[in-house]
Design a protein around this nucleic acid. Structure first.
Length: 80
DNA sequence: TATGAGCGA
């Protein structure tokens, strides 16, 4: 299941993003989107978890979580 | 800060 994560702190990178989801189950991939024109984080990213149940559990636990003083948004991706 | 990038293993 593909997961969309928004409102991420700019300091977050792929490894840290993956670290947030790993406690809930296997994470097949995690990527923080970076503006290739400026090289800065866009403040959102994607995580893919093969197990839907684990993915939904992760979403439920991480959506609205406070990270570095910022409330992140975690939801199922809109696109495949 | 709100839906992507990848050309190599």
């Amino acid at each position: 299941m593909k997961i969309f994560v928004a409102s991420l702190p700019f300091e977050i990178d792929d490894s840290e993003l993956k670290g947030f989801f790993e406690p809930f189950g296997e994470v097949s991939s995690a990527k923080v989107i970076v503006d290739k024109a400026t090289g800065r984080s866009r403040g959102f990213g994607f995580v893919d978890m093969p197990d839907e149940g684990m993915a939904k559990a992760a979403i439920a636990q991480l959506d609205g979580a406070d990270v570095d003083g910022r409330t992140i948004v975690v939801k199922e991706s809109e696109k495949q």
